[in-house]
C-alpha cells in the first residue's frame, strides 16, 4: 500500500541519445503511460514513447473546412442574396473573386482549430501539474532530459518500476507526488 498518492516516477538523463534509448526500452518493456520532457526537440522521441496517432489533424481539417465554407458563404450571401449588384456584366456568383477570402478563412479556421484544439487536447492551460513537484524538473527547460512513467499505467509498481528505471542508467530517479 502506498503511503501517499504518487503521480509517477521520473528519470533524469543527460543527453538526447540517452533518453531516446531509455524511452525505447521503456516502451518495449510494455509501459504505455509514458511522457518525456526535453529542452530541445528530439527527433524520434515521440515515436519512441509510442505516440503514433492524434486526432488533431481531423480537428484542424474540420476547422479549415468550416472557415472555408463560411468565407465562401459570406461572399455568396453578400453578393448574391443580400445585395445583388451587376459588376462589369459578371455573374452574381462571381466565384473566382471569392476564392482569396475562402482561402484566407480556411487558413484562419485551420490555424485557430490547431492552436485551441492542441491546447484543449493537452489539457492546457493547467495551473497545477504534479511533475513540478520534483525540484530538478526545472532543468527540463535548460539541459536535462526527463522520462516519466505514470502511476496510472497498468504495469506500474512503485518498487519494480523504480528498479527498471535504474537499469536505464539515469542520472537520478525521482518519485512524483500527486
Amino acid at each position: 500500500m502506498k503511503a501517499k498518492p504518487i503521480y509517477g516516477l521520473m528519470a533524469e538523463f543527460e543527453s538526447p541519445e540517452q533518453i531516446l534509448a531509455a524511452a525505447q526500452k521503456t516502451h518495449d518493456a510494455g509501459y504505455k503511460r509514458i511522457d518525456a520532457f526535453t529542452p530541445i526537440p528530439v527527433e524520434g522521441l515521440a515515436e519512441a514513447i509510442g505516440f503514433d496517432w492524434t486526432s488533431l489533424p481531423i480537428v484542424v481539417f474540420l476547422g479549415g473546412l468550416f472557415g472555408g465554407l463560411s468565407g465562401f458563404g459570406m461572399c455568396y450571401y453578400a453578393n448574391v442574396i443580400s445585395f445583388p449588384l451587376d459588376i462589369g456584366g459578371k455573374p452574381l456568383n462571381s466565384w473566382p473573386a471569392w476564392i482569396p477570402i475562402t482561402f484566407e478563412l480556411t487558413i484562419l479556421g485551420g490555424a485557430l482549430a490547431a492552436t485551441f484544439g492542441m491546447l484543449a487536447m493537452n489539457g492546457l492551460p493547467s495551473p497545477y501539474h504534479p511533475v513540478f513537484n520534483v525540484q530538478r524538473f526545472a532543468l527540463a527547460s535548460t539541459d536535462r532530459f526527463f522520462l516519466c512513467i505514470k502511476a496510472r499505467d497498468k504495469k506500474f509498481d512503485a518498487a519494480q518500476t523504480r528498479t527498471f528505471l535504474e537499469t536505464l542508467q539515469p542520472h537520478g530517479v525521482f518519485e512524483i507526488e500527486d
Binding site: G88, G89, K90, S94, P96, A97, I99, P100
Partner: peptide, 12 residues
C-alpha cells in the same frame, strides 16, 4: 494557375 484566372476575371 488560379492567380492568372483571378487577375483576368477582375480585370475583365
Amino acid at each position: 494557375s488560379f492567380d492568372q484566372l483571378l487577375i483576368t476575371w477582375a480585370g475583365n
